[in-house]
Simulated scan of single mutants.
Amino acid sequence: MLDEQRAKGRIFANGRFADGWGGMVIYQSETLAEVREWVENDPYVTHQARRFEIHEWEMVH
């Protein structure tokens, strides 16, 4: 799923946390609703293999 999202230009960055606790995906989108739809339809989420939290991020240049 992430490869598909990356190919569509929707992922800014992703990776595991160094402490093994989990990981993070930074999506690029116009709306929070759009990201929620992508995440809620991720097979890992629909099969309850992973949980998620969504937080808006304001990048500082």
Results as ranks from 00 to 15, higher is better:
1 M>Q: 01
2 L>C: 00
3 D>I: 04
3 D>F: 08
3 D>K: 07
3 D>V: 01
6 R>K: 15
6 R>W: 10
6 R>V: 13
6 R>T: 09
7 A>D: 15
7 A>C: 08
8 K>V: 07
8 K>W: 10
10 R>M: 12
10 R>T: 04
10 R>V: 08
11 I>W: 02
11 I>F: 08
11 I>H: 03
13 A>I: 07
13 A>C: 14
13 A>M: 14
14 N>Y: 14
14 N>W: 15
15 G>D: 06
15 G>N: 14
16 R>T: 11
18 A>N: 15
18 A>W: 10
19 D>I: 06
20 G>Y: 11
20 G>N: 09
22 G>S: 00
22 G>K: 08
22 G>H: 07
24 M>N: 11
24 M>F: 11
24 M>L: 14
28 Q>N: 10
28 Q>G: 03
28 Q>E: 12
29 S>F: 03
29 S>E: 08
30 E>K: 13
31 T>G: 02
32 L>S: 01
32 L>Q: 00
33 A>R: 03
33 A>Y: 01
34 E>A: 06
35 V>P: 01
35 V>Q: 05
36 R>P: 00
37 E>A: 10
38 W>A: 09
38 W>H: 08
38 W>R: 06
38 W>C: 07
40 E>C: 04
42 D>V: 10
42 D>Y: 09
43 P>D: 08
43 P>Y: 13
46 T>N: 00
48 Q>R: 13
49 A>V: 11
49 A>Y: 13
49 A>F: 14
50 R>E: 03
51 R>K: 07
51 R>W: 03
52 F>V: 06
53 E>M: 05
53 E>N: 01
54 I>H: 02
54 I>R: 00
56 E>I: 02
56 E>F: 05
57 W>F: 14
58 E>N: 14
58 E>G: 05
58 E>Q: 10
60 V>C: 05
60 V>Q: 14
61 H>W: 10
61 H>V: 12
61 H>A: 12
